[in-house]
C-alpha cells in the first residue's frame, strides 16, 4: 500500500517537475537535458505579447477576486439574515454558479452580452450628445464579470462555512453589553471571519488567473495568460512555454499555500 501511495505522489509531481526542469534546458529537445540555461526565461520576459497577456491576467484576477471577496462576504453575512425560503433560493443559485460547466458559463455569457450590447449600443449612440458615443464590447469587463460569478459563489461558500462555525454567544455578549450592531461586527465578527475572506480572495485570484475556458469565450480582443499559452501550444511546443508554465505554476503555488495557511486553524483539512 505504501508503494502504491508513493507511486501516486510521484505520478502527481513528476510531470510538473519535468516542465520546471526543462524550462532550464539549454537545448530544445524534451528528451534530453543538455545543460542548464535561463535563456527561455529571457526570451519569455522580452516577449511583449506575453507580458501584455500577463498584465491583463493580473488586472482581471485582482479585480474579480476583490469584487468577489467584498460582495461574496456581504452576501454570506446577508444570507444569515434572510428567511429560510429566500436563503434556499440563494443557496441554489450559488450552487448552480459552481456546478454549471465553465464552457456553458462562457457560452451563455457571450450570447447574453452580445445580445445586450446589440440592444444598448444603438440606444447609446442615439442619446449620446457628443460625436463619439461609447461602444460596449467584450473585454476586461466581461471577463471580470464572468469570473466574478464563480468566485463570488466560492467566497460566499467559504465565508458562510466560517460564520456557521462562529460562536453565537460572543456576539450576543457583545450586544448585551450595548455595543451597536456595527461595532459588534467590526470588533467581534470581522476579525474572526477575516482569514476566510482572505483565503477566499486568494482562491478566487487563483481561479481567475488560471481560468482558460470562460475567458476564451468572453475575452473579445483581450488576451489573458492562459489564452496566450493555449494559442502558443497550438503553434507548437517550445521550451519557452515551459518557462511560462513554470511562472504560472509559481504564482498559483504561492497563492494556494498562503490560502491554506490562512485556513489552517480549521480542524479538518479540506479540498
Amino acid at each position: 500500500m505504501r508503494a502504491l501511495v508513493t507511486f501516486v505522489y510521484v505520478f502527481l509531481y513528476t510531470p510538473i517537475a519535468l516542465v520546471v526542469l526543462f524550462s532550464f534546458n539549454a537545448g530544445r529537445n524534451a528528451s534530453e537535458f543538455i545543460g542548464f540555461s535561463a535563456q527561455w526565461y529571457g526570451k519569455a520576459l522580452s516577449n511583449t505579447f506575453l507580458m501584455e497577456a500577463l498584465r491583463n491576467s493580473l488586472i482581471v484576477a485582482f479585480t474579480s477576486a476583490a469584487l468577489a471577496a467584498i460582495f461574496g462576504t456581504m452576501a454570506a453575512i446577508g444570507m444569515e439574515r434572510l428567511g429560510a425560503r429566500t436563503r434556499a433560493v440563494f443557496d441554489g443559485l450559488f450552487a448552480a454558479a459552481i456546478v454549471v460547466p465553465g464552457v456553458v458559463i462562457g457560452i451563455a455569457t457571450l450570447v447574453a452580452l452580445v445580445e445586450v450590447f446589440g440592444f444598448i449600443n444603438p440606444v447609446l449612440a442615439a442619446i449620446w450628445p457628443g460625436d463619439q458615443p461609447p461602444r460596449l464590447s467584450l473585454g476586461y469587463g466581461s471577463i471580470i464579470a464572468a469570473h466574478g460569478l464563480f468566485t463570488m459563489a466560492l467566497v460566499t461558500m467559504i465565508v458562510k462555512a466560517r460564520i456557521a462555525g462562529l460562536g453565537r454567544d460572543i456576539v450576543e455578549a457583545s450586544s448585551d453589553l450595548y455595543a451597536a450592531p456595527l461595532t459588534t461586527f467590526r470588533q467581534i465578527v470581522l476579525p474572526q471571519i477575516m482569514p476566510s475572506i482572505l483565503a477566499g480572495f486568494l482562491l478566487a485570484f487563483t481561479f481567475s488567473f488560471d481560468d482558460f475556458i470562460i475567458a476564451f469565450f468572453v475575452a473579445g480582443s483581450n488576451t489573458t495568460l492562459p489564452i496566450y499559452v493555449f494559442a502558443s501550444i497550438r503553434r507548437g511546443v517550445t521550451p519557452e512555454i515551459n518557462a511560462i508554465a513554470t511562472m504560472v505554476l509559481a504564482v498559483s503555488l504561492a497563492l494556494i499555500l498562503i490560502a491554506r495557511f490562512l485556513m489552517r486553524e480549521k480542524k479538518k483539512p479540506t479540498t
Binding site: 519535468l18 516542465v19 488560471d210 491554506r260
Partner: peptide, 14 residues
C-alpha cells in the same frame, strides 16, 4: 490538494 489549484492547462500541457 495543491496540484488541484494550479493551472489545469499547465498540468495537461505537461
Amino acid at each position: 490538494v495543491v496540484p488541484f489549484w494550479t493551472s489545469l492547462l499547465v498540468r495537461t500541457y505537461a
